[in-house]
Amino acid sequence: SKGEELFTGVVPILVELDGDVNGHKFSVSGEGEGDATYGKLTLKFICTTGKLPVPWPTLVTTLSYGVQCFSRYPDHMKQHDFFKSAMPEGYVQERTIFFKDDGNYKTRAEVKFEGDTLVNRIELKGIDFKEDGNILGHKLEYNYNSHNVYIMADKQKNGIKVNFKIRHNIEDGSVQLADHYQQNTPIGDGPVLLPDNHYLSTQSALSKDPNEKRDHMVLLEFVTAAGITHGMDELYK
C-alpha cells in the first residue's frame, strides 16, 4: 500500500491521552519512536497531572497497542496490513475493555500522521470500578505478559474488528483478565486493505527511568503479524 511507504525508516511517535476513571481525571503524554521494519516501539509516557489513578499496565493496550501500524508484517502478509494502508489520513480506533469482576474502559483514538510524526490521540472513560479493586486499589504488578491480538475484516465499515484477552499479573500471584473489543475505521476515503483473519504477536517490557521524578512508564515492545501461511505457489519458487 502507499501508506506502507511512510514506515520504511524510524518514525517519531506522539501520544496524548485524556482519561476519566470513576471521576478521577488524568492526562498522559508520551513520545518515542517506531520502526515497522522490526516491529519495534520505544516509548516513554508521563502522567502530566500528577499521580496516575490507575496502574500503568492497564493503559498499555490504549497507548502502544494503539499504534499497531508499527507491527512488522512479513512480505507474504503485507496485503493484510490494514493499519499502514489507512495512512497518512489514519484511522479511528474504538475499544471497550472489560476488566473481569470490575469496571470497564471505553476508548476512542485517532491515529494519524501530523507532518512526519505518527500521533495517537485518545479519550478514555472508565466506569463501575471498585475503589478497593485491583485497578483503583493499585494491586497489579508492574510488568506485562505476551499476547496474541486477533484481527478480522469488517467489510460493512471498511475497517477491521479486533479482539483479545489481556492477563494482568496481580501482586498476590493471581491474574486480572481484561477482555478487549476493538473496531478500526479509516478517516480518509481512499482504498484500504481488508485482511484475511490473522493475529499480531506482541511482547512488551515495562521499565522506569531512574532520572524521572514524575509518574511515568518506559515501554519497549515488539509486534509481529502472523497466522497466514505462504501460498503453495510461494513454496515452490
Rank of each mutant, 00 (worst) to 15 (best):
S29T: 14
F98L: 11
L235M: 05
K40E: 04
V54E: 01
K125E: 07
P210A: 09
G103A: 03
N169I: 12
K51R: 11
M232K: 11
M217L: 07
H147N: 12
A226P: 13
N163T: 15
D132Y: 05
I166M: 06
V92L: 06
D196G: 12
S85A: 11
S201T: 14
Y142H: 07
Q203L: 12
G231A: 15
F164Y: 08
K25R: 09
G231D: 14
P74H: 15
D101Y: 05
D179V: 04
A205S: 05
Y105N: 01
D116A: 14
K165T: 13
H230L: 09
K157V: 15
S174C: 13
D116N: 15
M87A: 06
Y144L: 15
K213R: 12
G159D: 11
D233H: 10
N184S: 10
E110V: 14
V218I: 15
D196A: 14
K157Q: 09
K84E: 01
T48N: 06
K208R: 08
P195L: 04
H216P: 00
K2E: 08
K125R: 10
E94V: 05
K40M: 11
T96A: 11
Y91H: 01
L59H: 01
K40R: 10
K51E: 08
D179G: 07
F7I: 05
S146R: 12
K51Q: 03
K161T: 15
M87I: 05
F99S: 00
P191S: 10
I127N: 08
D81V: 00
D215N: 02
E234A: 07
F164V: 09
L194R: 07
P210H: 05
Q93L: 01
N211T: 14
T48A: 04
Y199S: 07
G190D: 07
T42N: 09
D20H: 05
F164I: 06
I13L: 10
T96S: 10
V28M: 02
Y144F: 11
M217V: 03
D116G: 13
N145D: 12
H180R: 00
N158I: 04
L52M: 05
N163Y: 12
F83Y: 14
E234K: 07
